[in-house]
Design a protein around this nucleic acid. Sequence first.
DNA 1: ACCTGAACACCGTTCAAGT
DNA 2: ACCTGAACACCGTTCAAGT
Lengths: 151, 151
Amino acid sequence: MRAVAKELGVAPNALYSHVADKDALVDALLDDVLGALDPPAPDAEPLAGLRGVMLATFDLLGSHADLVPVYLARQGARGANARALGEAMSVLLARLGVEGRAAGRVVRALIVSTLGFAALATADDPTLTPADLRADLEATLDWLLRGAARV
Amino acid sequence: MRAVAKELGVAPNALYSHVADKDALVDALLDDVLGALDPPAPDAEPLAGLRGVMLATFDLLGSHADLVPVYLARQGARGANARALGEAMSVLLARLGVEGRAAGRVVRALIVSTLGFAALATADDPTLTPADLRADLEATLDWLLRGAARV
DNA sequence: ACCTGAACACCGTTCAAGT
DNA sequence: ACCTGAACACCGTTCAAGT
């Protein structure tokens, strides 16, 4: 809060005229970053569309590395943009015959893997480059989607 | 650090005679908790063994809910116990024909999902009970293992 | 409606000193 | 080897007051 206030050239407590507390500000920020993502079109090929959003999310998180631990701490974003992405994913899953509780389960599995590999990618382990982890994520997404769609 | 010191009835800075800094203490604690897990036997049925360790990990994290955000922040444990579990998993994967870089990839996919669902389970969302999320994890592990083993 | 100064109750960590 | 008191440089947040 103090760092944000300094950035704005304002006293730290001035922020509390605009935001309830730090968590509220952080949640708003996280969802805002997610706004850069295009939800997959409803008529896209479902497997490619789902794969595509998750890889785009991985790439987006890679360019906001400092935010990844914050996403983990808040267990992902839950704002309007996050919901819109989730709903677009559910539409594609329905076209694969996955609906209702099962769709929620697949969305969670996809998100958890994407966030998890993004987190590993921001750790600076020289034996595990971001490109390697992106390839890991691609394989993982394929396993999940193929399993969920019973292809 | 101050809370731990108080628990021990000691001045906060006394801890620095035993531990380099907070991260070192936290890493040691996380790996210590992991010591409660039995690595799967090398001659166990591979799919059942791998599934079993991950579900046992999920259950263990459920009984240490306050530590789950800490695991996320530190991207899992990397101590001796974590390594032993990883190696036992690699042995089972080798018996499925998954070796080398591919084995590391599968281990990461399994761990990321397990930690991720454990994190969701500790969030208090009334629409998503720990039992539901455990079932989600079971399905996810099956998809990953079946995909990785090409069954 | 939006900002300020001052304060409260915290942090992790260092340093010099004691036994 | 292990502890202490004192201090440093921080936090998020509240409260009363100003415009």
